[in-house]
Nucleic acid binder design. Structure first.
Lengths: 211, 211
DNA sequence: ACCTGAACACCGTTCAAGT
DNA sequence: ACCTGAACACCGTTCAAGT
């Protein structure tokens, strides 16, 4: 638009530019605010220019997910008890997810991302469990439960229908009621709720020989 | 296509036809197999004819979600202990979700559906908790934890990238490895995993004065 | 009320060509 | 290697018109 580039001229993009701007678009206008075309528009290139940096939209989103996970604070495996370590890593993950609420539905849709950072976190969790004497199948069970619980809970904090556009639900009766489980909660209440359930899970996981 | 209807002729559709066929399309070809246009094609009507039965695609999907939840087996609140009742209702929900794997990402995206059937299940859970002496905020906490856990776990059983089209991930090295948490599990293993975590949660929730 | 025709404003992606 | 132009095969939704 502004600088009318012609045929052979370069825009000087990098893959980082593409990812960063994509995240910006999502932050600004939600999940469907990000299209290959809107992204290209923002970067001031033609839509198909993006395919020099990303094989397709799916890969672009995978990149976003993994980039967010990179900021999860993984405590050194030696410090503290395994329970504390697991609690810390899940809580940090929860907070990172909250900082990227709009990505949460995507994590859920592809059940937890597959990138290198996801693997890194999984490995740390396994080593913490191993230090607590839990290995093999039982350890993998525990990891799955914890991941599912954490992402799922982050989804609760996600404003309903981020990805949904026209949500003109019919006007309710006299009292417009709360959601199924009485959803309107503060972020603090939800965090406390998360912590409570996490403790239950960790107690169960780490209980001597599964109770 | 087949019977060339003209201007004023009716196709004789019902809302049920629309919902049923929509579910068929999803079962056959996944989430992006369902578009307003593909649905209309299957029903042999023009795309905009659907808007006589459904205000938009979002509402259509909400209808699908609630219809699935209608089949959840809610045990009579009197039979057995609250723990058994809660376990039964969550297990039934889990099974229903597994029977509709392709809908799970949608449940997650809108965090648990809002229809009448969702409300019905929530109310039953609350009354079971109440019978166990858990009310108010604590009860709502527990409901949220259980719902999130159940939907989240169903997501684990969902084949990765149901909604993702072109998943030509790069070919791995010598050994094509497992997913982050070692995902390739049988349905039975996952169900057992679900049951284990559910027990942990119920133990925590129903423990005398939160331990 | 239920349906069609035609259109609007979009999508993601590919193919060929330029430097 | 990086980019544009142009096109393909789609979307969801609306508006006007027919019976």
């Amino acid at each position: 638009m502004s600088t009318p580039r012609t045929r052979g001229q370069r825009a000087g993009l990098t893959r980082q530019d593409v990812l960063t701007t994509a995240q910006q678009l999502i932050s600004e206008s939600g999940l469907d605010g990000l299209t290959m075309r809107s992204l290209a528009r923002r970067l001031d290139v033609a839509p198909n220019a993006l395919y020099s940096y990303v094989p397709n939209k799916t890969a672009l989103i995978d990149g976003l997910l993994d980039e967010a996970l990179a900021t999860v604070d993984a405590p050194p495996p030696e410090a503290g008890t395994p329970a504390d370590g697991l609690s810390a890593i899940m809580t940090s993950t929860y907070e990172v997810l909250l900082a990227h609420v709009d990505l949460v539905p995507l994590y859920l849709a592809r059940q937890g991302a597959r990138g290198p950072n996801a693997r890194r976190l999984g490995d740390i969790m396994l080593s913490l469990l191993s230090a607590a004497g839990i290995t093999d199948a039982a350890a993998h069970e525990a990891v799955r439960v914890l991941i599912v619980y954490t992402i799922g809970f982050a989804a609760l904090a996600t404003p309903p229908s981020l990805a949904v556009t026209s949500a003109d639900t019919e006007v309710a009766g006299p009292h417009s009621e709360t959601t199924p489980a009485g959803l309107p909660l503060s972020a603090d209440e939800l965090s406390a709720n998360f912590a409570t359930g996490l403790r239950w899970l960790l107690d169960g996981i780490l209980a001597p020989t599964s109770r």
